[in-house]
Design a protein around this nucleic acid. Sequence first.
DNA 1: GGCGATCGCTAGACGCTCTAGCGTTCCGAC
DNA 2: GTCGGAACGCTAGAGCGTCTAGCGATCGCC
Lengths: 180, 180
Amino acid sequence: MAADPVDAPHYWYGADDRMPSAAVLESLRAYRAAETAMRRRTRESMHMGESDLLALRYLLRAEREHRAVTPKDLADYLAISTASTSVLLNRLEKSGHIRRAPHPTDRRALVVTSTGASDDEVRATLGRMHARMLEVAAQLSVDEAAVVIRFLDGMREAVDAIDVPDGAASESARPADSEA
Amino acid sequence: MAADPVDAPHYWYGADDRMPSAAVLESLRAYRAAETAMRRRTRESMHMGESDLLALRYLLRAEREHRAVTPKDLADYLAISTASTSVLLNRLEKSGHIRRAPHPTDRRALVVTSTGASDDEVRATLGRMHARMLEVAAQLSVDEAAVVIRFLDGMREAVDAIDVPDGAASESARPADSEA
DNA sequence: GGCGATCGCTAGACGCTCTAGCGTTCCGAC
DNA sequence: GTCGGAACGCTAGAGCGTCTAGCGATCGCC
């Protein structure tokens, strides 16, 4: 494994049912690495940190679904403090990606909205990628899709099952991760 | 192009009223989120940064394959500067996870070795998880494994294909990613 | 033997996160 | 009606990890 993730000669084990499982995991690893790399490229091209981009994507998705987003929502989603969220919003506001507006009913809170610029910028990259991913997924038959889903769910359960001993992490929702 | 599958008048897909492609991507997303969360839990339980843990995993894997690792190797793999790598090694050395030893042939360089403690610590969590993942993968038939691999490779190509306009990110190889 | 390239290191700066604590606003109890 | 705790978003100051710049030591090729 190590070295090159790209040219792993999977696809074909012929009658040799040697270890397709290892090849599957290698493919998963390669995908994961590619995604991480893509994420970094995007981050760098937009001159942003990971959280900034994640916040922007979350915001754009929320707007598509007509959900209002408050700084608190972002803090929970990103699993960072509200203090960090304030600074994050300052950055995104100064760079012209978002705007702050008063919350319609709660005068303590505010709602975050995206500007057209940020929408275009993100859509230009992530949108295209998502379309390609959807294309690939659409090429699966119903049965094949079921296989893939079963596999991915199993993998998810495997990593979810890992509980760390030290136990430093436990509070409420750590789901915040990424994406969505 | 035509990315949006919305217009395709598909049949009905069982209990899940979404199209299988969307469901597949959702599973992929869920896995990704779970893995990110696991990574954070592990990081926190070991009181380490992301790079530290990645470096340690890289080192342990290299040792299993009897490959010597120099600070330069780590810098390239982690895509950080050699300066940052020096500091990283200082951290890991002080915490007792690694040791620095002179390089057998190049007196400018040195080789990084892991201590037994770090091996145990990592194996206690990641090893168990990897075993579970292997289990799940092993439940696939050869044909099913091929389907999953084809899917994952397609996904990898999709994210690899994304090229950012600004072009800030381009240096040498984009390999450095993560994982492995 | 000399000289550019490579290796790993320190110094100083920057960016992003954190905890602590602030004022404002909300909401249920009195 | 008002009073007090809770929730929201903010600023201040510190910590951590990364970066660039530049150092001495060593290598390898001429």
